[in-house]
Design a protein around this nucleic acid. Structure first.
Lengths: 229, 229
DNA sequence: TAAAGAAGAAATTTCGAAAATCTGGACAAA
DNA sequence: TTTGTCCAGATTTTCGAAATTTCTTCTTTA
């Protein structure tokens, strides 16, 4: 693990977590001090983040955090539906026993932490638990498509996941309203369809799941926007 | 335009054109001499190329050109079909007069150079003309999907295009057999379906076009493989 | 002979200084 | 007032040396 890799991951999470506001210039001198590294690993990390579309750069003008908007959120959500629905169909077609095993396991791990958070401490307070929730959520959705056999689709899905994660984090920050629908039930339905080897039903459920999440995020962002203005 | 950008583009074309054999380590000292630049712009360019999956890297072990294989080619082709077919449907739905204009224009430009190459000089000799053909071919396919309104789909399509270009270049290098089918007619059929605003027919034709190209590339690669062994 | 280890060579990675470029403001000219 | 130019400070970008790690080769040992 090189310094570049470390800085890359730290910058990545800091951007996804919204530590740097969108469109804010990322000053190298400041990052140098904050992360305690030289220019080289910083610039290498930023160049990689550009490929993931987390930052944008203009020649001689350095790097900025990429913007956020409702329109861009829907672009990411729709693209994600297209790619993950197909990857899920392929996984259902090609996945073996080991795939089913990791699928059930990751769903169970997700259910456990959802239950714990639902019954346990106050919501929003325990950031560590929320990060663990996000991690297991990502693991479950990754497990669904992990047997698709396409490195490109998995690559694209990962990029779109981090992109949409930026919006989920933002929603958690400024969400006063609670989520009405039962996301756990949606996950279970997708799992059931996958285990039943029904590609079309599974893909449709995944589509609806992401679309619902998109509507939820849109509502939160708009409420936050009007509340802020 | 910074030095990093220049080096990035040069490395990119050199890799796509097959100047560096797949899996060969890219020695920084040698690249430094070849391109006449320091370490910094080189490493920045390589980090960006990693995001496009043209090179791979291992910690403390530098960069290598990514491998080529028939299986990976089909992965890229199938992913490309999924993404560009959807982008084409969206373009047909949302494209205006200006879209149709650039579409017709880019098709015409492509037809011109195809005609010139067909009747003109010996095939394979004029590399400049072949590069221009490749450029216009890319322009036409980009024009088809340019009105889709999704930055993510356009981004993915661009990456997959350069990936498949690696195989097209390879095929041009070692192809002794000539291509039987009329690619120009396929392009015209796609153009007609797009102008007729028939999304399903256009998507199906695009699908068949890329699939056919995939079969062609597979055959060339296998022939080259058996001929070499 | 095979395996393990050490020394030397080669390559990558990182750092900070230096060069190149941009930004904003002061000042002059129209 | 507006427009254009030039300078100083700030910032990005590039370079080559130094530090770190990996690879190679030779030697030793069982």
């Amino acid at each position: 693990m090189t310094l570049s890799d470390t800085v890359y991951e730290r910058l990545r999470t800091d951007i996804v977590q919204g530590r740097f506001p969108p469109l804010q210039p990322l000053r190298l001198e400041q990052l140098k001090r904050d992360y305690g590294v030289g220019f080289s690993p910083l610039r290498e990390a930023l160049n990689r983040l550009q490929g993931e579309r987390l930052v944008v750069s203009a020649a001689q003008r350095g790097f900025r955090v990429r913007s956020l908007s409702v329109a861009e959120m829907w672009d990411a959500v729709n693209s994600r539906i297209l790619i993950e629905a197909e990857a899920l169909r392929l996984s259902i077609d090609q996945g073996g026993d080991d795939w089913e095993a990791t699928l059930v396991a990751s769903f169970h791990a997700l259910s456990l932490i959802v239950q714990r958070l639902g019954t346990g401490a106050a919501d929003g307070a325990d950031t560590a638990a929320l990060e663990e929730l996000e991690r297991r959520h990502r693991e479950f959705h990754l497990a669904l498509i992990s047997a698709c056999g396409s490195t490109w689709l998995l690559d694209f899905a990962a990029k779109l996941n981090t992109e949409t994660e930026r919006y989920r984090v933002l929603a958690l920050r400024c969400a006063t309203l609670r989520r009405e629908r039962d996301v756990g039930a949606e996950h279970r339905a997708i799992l059931d369809a996958a285990l039943a080897r029904d590609p079309e039903r599974a893909a449709d459920l995944l589509d609806a799941h992401y679309r619902e999440t998109g509507h939820f995020l849109e509502q939160v962002l708009q409420d936050a926007g009007t509340a802020a203005s």
